[in-house]
Nucleic acid binder design. Structure first.
Lengths: 190, 190
DNA sequence: TATGATATCGAACATTTTGTTCAATATTAT
DNA sequence: ATAATATTGAACAAAATGTTCGATATCATA
């Protein structure tokens, strides 16, 4: 990708992210974005069809990293179900979030976090679906599979939301423990 | 309330609801609403400050009924914790939704359902908070209270969402059973 | 380093949407 | 019947969207 393109794209992402932590998505205008990013109006529309697509691409870029890291983890541990809690997928996710190596946390905790949490959940859903055998437990066997998978994803996202709302004052290990408790998957999944 | 006011208000609500099941909230314009409702532009703005307030008031009107019915139930059964499952609050909510006595189901199942599910969850959260002693169980005692309450509300809303997505092919009793299973609250809450 | 390709610029532009105003008209409550 | 009030339609300003285009700056690469 051309350096100019990359620069413009990043300037727009940066400006947009900043604005998202100041006001709600629907009240942000293209005019504000390009002013802050310091790019021309035509440039914006050369990169992104609409404001909605900008959001979509930002989300994809953000969650790409975090899910890649989980998939790597899954592939490295074919026998993950034999591991202890510290090696679990979910603990890994909590730890990854805590490290905050990109701006994902900022966006997950801003007033528009619902948008990002939804993307987060969708990615999680796919991940769990693809490895669903890992996420079974005795209690929930009788439930329809998609109900079960949906429940686990939702519970995880809600836990993350609560964790962030509480300024992440609990350690990844503690919060993973809470999550294990409510999903009742301690012995099977970790 | 003046009959003219009521008529305009209802025409606007109706038009807005219809549009919501056709396209996303952000793409609906005031122009479209007033065309379909067949009221003047000035009338719209006499009733609602903005499109956002229209949504807010629609939600309030919709969920007012359903939560009132639950509170009534709670007051009629001071000893609800001694009741069997069929009398539970949550089963009552599932049954109330199934009856579909207003247009709430339509909106909960349209492509914009996230908006309404969020309102639903907020109402639920308040309800559960006010009667939180009813929603305890052995397993979850060690969790922070707001975490627990948030988890139950989320699990309920996610269950409703899944139920609706699956065309409500399960009975209120069945779906209440699923909910009880994942929240692990069978013995204490019902 | 010269060249052709391409990204950006900025300014102008048409279009859409928002939100306000106002005088004329219709409906309501009493 | 009367006074109060809601609606109307049209016009209006302001803001936002999305497009166009020629000039300029930057890039890849030979």
């Amino acid at each position: 990708m051309d350096r100019r393109q990359r620069k413009s794209r990043e300037a727009i992402f940066k400006a947009f992210s900043e604005l998202l932590s100041e006001k709600s998505f629907s009240h942000i205008t293209v005019g504000e974005i390009i002013d802050r990013a310091d790019v021309g109006r035509a440039t914006f529309y050369a990169h992104f069809e609409t404001k909605d697509y900008l959001l979509k691409e930002l989300c994809e870029e953000l969650f790409c990293h975090i899910f890649d890291s989980v998939e790597g983890k899954l592939n490295n541990h074919k026998h993950i179900f034999e591991c202890d809690a510290p090696d679990s997928v979910f603990l890994h996710l909590f730890q990854h979030l805590k490290k905050n190596d990109n701006s994902i946390l900022e966006l997950l905790s801003c007033q528009n976090n619902e948008i990002f949490l939804r993307y987060f959940k969708d990615g999680l859903l796919k991940l769990i679906k693809s490895e669903s055998f890992l996420f079974e437990n005795e209690n929930m066997k009788q439930l329809p599979e998609d109900f079960r998978i949906n429940f686990i994803s939702s519970a995880f996202v809600e836990t993350v939301k609560w964790w962030i709302d509480n300024k992440m004052k609990y350690s990844p290990e503690e919060i993973a423990g809470y999550f294990m408790l409510v999903t009742n998957c301690k012995t099977q999944m970790f």
